[in-house]
């Protein structure tokens, strides 16, 4: 699938596959949360209904051209990042960009959103963005620390190489088992990256009226949903590739996705929300030192 016709077919099909996976995961998330709260919950493809409803709204308001372009940048940027994250049988683009590239590509959609939200001229939105950027200093730094440790240990910054090395060594060399300190730190970071409780400070519906989404309605909100649904499997895949040895087959891939997401969701379902500075302090007190300790141990072993 990494050359010729197969490649082209994959490039075209992959967004749809990813969106479909995202819908399933999103629906599963809502169903599971409902179950934890002893509710029945919506159907498994509820996100699809939401997206269709939003995209077919008959009136839409915009606050200017940046607001429009931001939505294209949001979806476009996420789709782009998705191509650079290797999944089973499809890693053509990882030769053009390693994990450092992916890390930065991941910032393109939020940047687009931030600009669009800025133009909506709503302080709730601006506060949401301000919080989102501040949270970067929490989870993103932790995630980077764990990645630096791995890259140093294996002598490569390519996500595909790291994945291959773990697959060759078997489950014992999976990041989360070989370097548990880094793995645990990264799990915290994942929770923050997916913006789930207790780090759900960006949306905070009761506080800042869903922050960035405040002025988004109709197709604008629809595109944010589409972006979220594509980004969901992608972000889980990044964690999987670094710490769970990636996946060799699609069955393994989907199983790992759902297991990992379940872990995130159950934490999300039972916790309240930190304040922004509380979340930052938490990241700097526990996960980041854990990751740093893990890196020190890798260095000590290497000497």
């Amino acid at each position: 699938m990494n050359s010729g016709i197969g490649l082209i077919v994959w490039i075209i099909a992959y967004p749809f596959v990813s969106f479909f996976l995202g819908v399933l995961l999103g629906g599963y998330g809502r169903k599971l949360t409902a179950r934890v709260q002893r509710r029945v919950g919506p159907t498994w493809i509820q996100p699809l209904f939401d997206v269709i409803k939003l995209m077919t709204k008959q009136t839409n308001i915009s606050h200017g051209y940046m607001h429009d372009v931001a939505m294209m940048m949001l979806v476009g940027g996420t789709l782009m990042t998705m191509y650079f994250v290797p999944v089973p049988g499809f890693h053509y683009f990882s030769q053009f960009g390693d994990y450092i590239v992916v890390m930065y590509l991941l910032l393109v959609p939020p940047l687009g959103m931030a600009l669009g939200v800025g133009q909506t001229a709503n302080p709730n939105g601006s506060i949401g963005i301000s919080r989102a950027l501040q949270m970067l200093a929490g989870y993103e730094i932790t995630l980077v620390m764990t990645f630096i440790g791995f890259a140093m240990k294996h002598g490569t910054t390519s996500m595909y190489e790291l994945m291959k090395l773990q697959q060759a060594g078997g489950p014992a060399t999976w990041g989360i088992f070989a370097e548990p300190l880094l793995g645990i730190a990264a799990l915290f970071a994942l929770q923050g990256m997916l913006n789930e409780k207790p780090f759900e400070v960006i949306i905070a519906p009761h506080e800042i009226a869903t922050g960035p989404m405040t002025e988004m309605g109709g197709k604008y909100l629809g595109m944010m949903f589409i972006q979220h649904l594509i980004a969901l499997p992608m972000e889980l895949t990044i964690f999987m590739n670094l710490f769970l040895g990636g996946a060799q087959s699609w069955v393994e891939y989907v199983v790992k996705l759902f297991v990992l997401f379940t872990l995130v969701l159950v934490v999300n379902a039972v916790y309240g929300r930190f304040k922004t500075d509380g979340a930052l302090r938490f990241f700097w007190k526990l996960p980041l030192p854990l990751a740093a300790l893990g890196v020190v141990m890798i260095m000590a072993n290497g000497m």
């Binding site: 967004p15 995209m55 077919t56 709204k57 008959q58 009136t59 839409n60 308001i61 915009s62 606050h63 200017g64 429009d68 939505m71 294209m72 940048m73 949001l74 979806v75 476009g76 940027g77 789709l79 782009m80 191509y83 109709g218 197709k219 604008y220 629809g222 595109m223 589409i226």
Partner: peptide, 17 residues
């Protein structure tokens, strides 16, 4: 991918500033 995003955007309903 940006073009794809634009296509999705213009597939949606009319919008007004």
């Amino acid at each position: 991918t940006f073009i794809v995003g634009a296509v999705i955007f213009f597939m949606g309903g009319k919008r007004r500033i």
